[in-house]
Design a protein around this nucleic acid. Structure first.
Lengths: 404, 404
DNA sequence: TTCGATTTGTTGCTGGGCACAACATACGGC
DNA sequence: GCCGTATGTTGTGCCCAGCAACAAATCGAA
């Protein structure tokens, strides 16, 4: 079940066993894609074989699951028929509105990205209406592409750089876009109700291992700010208001340099994009449009060519970031960190430092060595994660798709 | 459902609707004690009135719920019969083994503490066998007291200062007790299976508001170290290994004083008991037995009499603690902190500082002002929370009690 | 006071869905 | 070719939630 919409925030409501079991069976198919049979589902869930069969049949006739021939026969006995998710059923539309680009993508039930389109253009030169219009146009194109690919869009989600109110589907505040109390999902095609969340949160959902391994990890997204998505047991933890993961303003040094937020020595002042650029001696003039990517690849180029100032800046940033993350891991008892955003591009220099800091400062290290991983997707992560969240909702409540 | 034992760590198993609904009904009775009727339960859960009646009847015949006359009649219509938890049914046994005292208590289904006994004696002068023997003796006495009070002990839980492996019911490491890989729950009466957890975690469960309000908060437990229990939506969050809440070694200042853990500038070095004592100019010689309480009350006395060094030490500790907690709240998006352990005794001087720091540094403050609260229970909190965790398990799975 | 309106709790009925058992199916091994 | 084994299907019974009708207990108004 996707932690967001279907979330049993108050699990004080009655349970529908059929719906729960359909989701359960579908989840097992998704987690062990292509290598699972009806009997396996029965064994793993504790349900009776006949019940599992009935559930799978309903999922098959509903167009969510298909049989994929027989499994490789190993033991004696009748060979099982393998089950897998259909890749021509429901699909999710993901949109990412960032400061200097807009991205849309379509993800099918298996989690595969079936369509992707990125428009790299700084939003700051455009009015709100123009931005919304672009979102609308891109969404329509994605919608058409999905239909041409025999996919049925069954939902959409928008990632924005800011604070959102998910219940009201409203952007509370997105400073870099100049948005405040904006119901942005209304520009989406009417037949797909729109979800909404922070970029870091959706980016965290883009990791492919999430569903398969029922993972718990901290996804760190380095951008102009530094955010994080907290994934616990395969579910995004959003906090009481939906603002979880605000690590950019954790205090590194109470006597450190002042931060626009009013405090001193925030993590962003050491490991944020601007701080890295400044420490490396690169001008970070916001007037040079298309800011984010190019400057970061510039940094990477410099580091690759051995520029000492750049290498020192990255080492320092990695150290500070690692130390801060170690604290987060200690608080949450998480054993896994994923480096996303700019840290993914800078991973060759940042990751070792983070790994070292985390290994030495994680208190559980003697019993469980923490791992640091580089994100699978780069700038397209929020859009993919957004689309995937739609898929998660289908898997969490397949009945809504079945009797649509 | 209690997040610990009954926890759907992998919610990959079939659901038993009857069990879930019994728990649901019982939970509603517990949350709205004395002011709820069968019809209310039906309305709030979405279950049919007849179903709610059936569930309540089963809970009544099982000895978990009772009718308490009629409700004050306000509107027209047949007056409802109020329901409440029985206080003469199942009860939980809680044990707290700390460095300088051992505590046991019995909590009934309503959450009330029905028996309590604390033996203040430093464990460091005794062998492991002696300590275990004392636990056994105290437990037997509590068992007898519960029986004399017409209560039926249906489970037990032990709080220890250290790292535990809940699945194996084993203390992995309790430095101050000298324990390592000890299956401490085996000394409990055989008919009550023993749970096990860290003191801070159980202490967090001792707060009475937990069940009623489905709360989310950070319970900070100041002792020799500084620990925390993370409560999300009324459930204790224990992390992937059960070590969550380790805030004592969050870094306050990377260039700060060295800490025995090998790092520098850990929170404990500023807001831990020893640090406060030292900063206040009080000797913290560990040779003076019965260390914890008396020295803390001494500090409180000094502060009350206006000793400037003491007041400065407390202000500083509160500041640093508050700043660190603000970071935790930002990461987890929690809006509520409970100050427990020594911070409860020192609350008059610590709490305002914490409150100020949290208010200014919590990023969500403009939309949701964070609150700081003083813990309900003092040193007995872990034992009470341990006992209460047993009760939570009964409420989370009443069937196990009903067909015992 | 009486009668309708209203809300609560109970009872009998129905149907959905799961467990169970028996059976058909399809292999491997001897 | 036969037996053992594992998978998937079919038929049966039971649990339990929903539904509707009814009894119970109050309020309000004529």
């Amino acid at each position: 079940m996707h932690a967001g919409t279907v979330r049993r925030r108050h699990d004080t409501t009655a349970v529908n066993p059929r719906a729960a079991h359909l989701s359960l069976a579908l989840r097992h198919v998704a987690e062990a894609s292509g290598q699972i049979s009806r009997a396996d589902i029965a064994a793993r869930t504790g349900l009776n074989r006949s019940t599992a069969s009935s559930l799978v049949d309903e999922l098959i006739t509903g167009g969510l699951v298909k049989e994929t021939g027989a499994t490789p026969r190993t033991r004696a006995g009748r060979p099982a028929t393998a089950l897998a998710l259909r890749d021509d059923g429901p699909a999710g539309l993901g949109v990412d509105v960032n400061v200097d680009y807009t991205a849309v993508c379509v993800v099918d039930l298996t989690g595969a990205v079936r369509y992707k389109h990125v428009v790299a253009e700084d939003q700051r030169g455009h009015t709100m209406a123009e931005i919304l219009d672009r979102i609308n146009t891109l969404s329509r194109a994605a919608h058409a592409a999905a239909r041409a690919d025999e996919l049925t869009l069954c939902g959409s989600a928008i990632a924005v750089p800011g604070i959102v109110d998910r219940d009201r589907a409203t952007v509370t505040l997105a400073p870099n876009l100049g948005w405040r109390d904006l119901a942005v999902t209304e520009v989406l095609p009417a037949d797909v109700h729109g979800l909404l969340d922070n970029e870091a949160n959706f980016a965290a959902l883009s990791e492919p291992g999430l569903l398969r391994a029922r993972a718990s990890y901290l996804y760190v997204s380095g951008q102009i700010g530094v955010g994080a998505g907290i994934v616990l047991d395969g579910h995004l933890y959003r906090g009481t208001h939906g603002w979880s993961g605000e690590i950019g303003h954790l205090t590194v040094d109470r006597d450190g340099p002042p931060c626009p937020c009013g405090r001193r020595g925030c993590l962003e002042r050491y490991a944020g994009q601007e701080a890295i650029l400044r420490a490396a001696g690169v001008s970070s003039d916001p007037g040079t449009a298309l800011g984010v990517r190019p400057t970061i690849t510039l940094i990477a180029d410099r580091a690759r060519s051995g520029d000492t100032a750049t290498l020192a800046a990255l080492t320092r940033a990695g150290e500070v970031l690692g130390a801060t993350l170690a604290g987060c891991l200690n608080l949450l008892d998480l054993g896994h960190v994923v480096l996303g955003g700019i840290y993914r591009d800078l991973a060759p220099w940042i990751a070792p430092e983070v790994e070292r800091e985390v290994a030495t400062q994680f208190l559980g290290a003697p019993w469980a060595r923490p791992t640091v991983e580089v994100a699978t997707y780069g700038p397209e992560a929020p859009a993919i994660g957004a689309a995937r969240s739609v898929i998660h909702d289908v898997i969490g409540d397949p009945l809504r798709w079945l009797n649509r």
